[in-house]
């Protein structure tokens, strides 16, 4: 693409809350860009406003100042080019796995036959075949988040945003799901073109991302932007891996 327009531009985004006339600054002048084939992690301690930032980026929240541009245009929450995966899965308990996955397509008024075929493809890609008619409560945590991921991929977004997608899961399930995310990411036939993920786990960020953006706490400011040039699959016991983790730790503390 060269010097073509970046997929996502976050331009000097700040966010404040006002309580009884006093201003509480959450985010301060956040600025970065995302190009195609970028896997970026936003990491920071709790209270750095990283989840708020992600919600501003997908258009669910509005910045106090600054701007978010997607393909050069201001972002809208219901933009089908951007999909979101939630920490708490945010599955509709009254819909089956298949119905949950078809949700985004239903909103796009796709006809039922097309919906079914597309949903089937992504249900299969995340390994949920066999659970199509199960309700979310019948699934384990890892399976629930797979539904969340399949639901997001089904609308074939260019950008996938994930808000702490593994932190409601136990350590074993989380590690397994991280690997499967990387498997999906390495398949060029599948969406998305770029991933933006929020996490509080530095190890997780170094394990997954090409680029890590480090935020400080209260208000959230950008401390550093690091290219992680380790080859995949990465081994968390590797001294080089640990070098990165230590460096980010020292930036935050």
């Amino acid at each position: 693409m060269g010097d073509a327009q970046p997929l996502l531009q976050v331009k000097d985004v700040s966010k404040s809350y006002f309580d009884q006339g006093k201003e509480f600054k959450i985010l301060d002048l956040i600025r970065f860009e995302l190009a195609e084939r970028d896997f970026v992690c936003l990491v920071g301690p709790s209270g750095c406003g990283k989840s708020t930032l992600l919600r501003i980026i997908v258009g669910l929240d509005t910045p106090t100042s600054g701007q978010v541009l997607f393909e050069g245009h201001p972002i809208r929450a219901d933009n089908p080019q951007v999909a979101m995966v939630f920490q708490s899965f945010a599955l509709f308990p009254w819909l089956t796995v298949a119905q949950n996955v078809e949700l985004g397509l239903e909103a796009l008024h796709e006809d039922p036959a097309k919906r079914r075929t597309v949903a089937k493809k992504f249900i299969d890609a995340v390994g949920l075949t066999g659970f199509e008619n199960a309700y979310p409560r019948e699934l384990s945590g890892g399976m629930k988040q797979r539904v969340g991921i399949a639901r997001a991929l089904t609308i074939e977004p260019l950008l996938l945003c994930m808000d702490e997608p593994f932190s409601s899961l136990d350590a074993l399930t989380a590690q397994n799901l991280r690997d499967e995310i990387l498997q999906l990411w390495s398949n060029p036939d599948l969406p998305p073109e770029a991933v933006l993920m929020v996490t509080h786990s530095i190890e997780e960020a170094v394990y997954l991302a090409d680029r890590v953006i480090v935020l400080s706490s209260r208000p959230g400011r950008m401390v550093a932007e690091l290219e992680i040039d380790l080859p995949r699959p990465r081994n968390r016991k590797d001294p080089e891996f640990y070098g990165w983790v230590d460096e980010i730790y020292s930036l935050i503390v």
């Binding site: 258009g59 669910l60 929450a77 219901d78 939630f86 708490s88 945010a90 819909l95 949700l103 909103a107």
Partner: peptide, 23 residues
């Protein structure tokens, strides 16, 4: 209504009757 569910509905573009029926 859990906030996440509401946000999921918004980010997937559920409006109007669809939002009422599904959420």
């Amino acid at each position: 209504l859990p906030q996440d569910l509401d946000q999921a509905a918004r980010s997937f573009g559920l409006h109007g009757w669809l939002r009422f029926r599904l959420l």
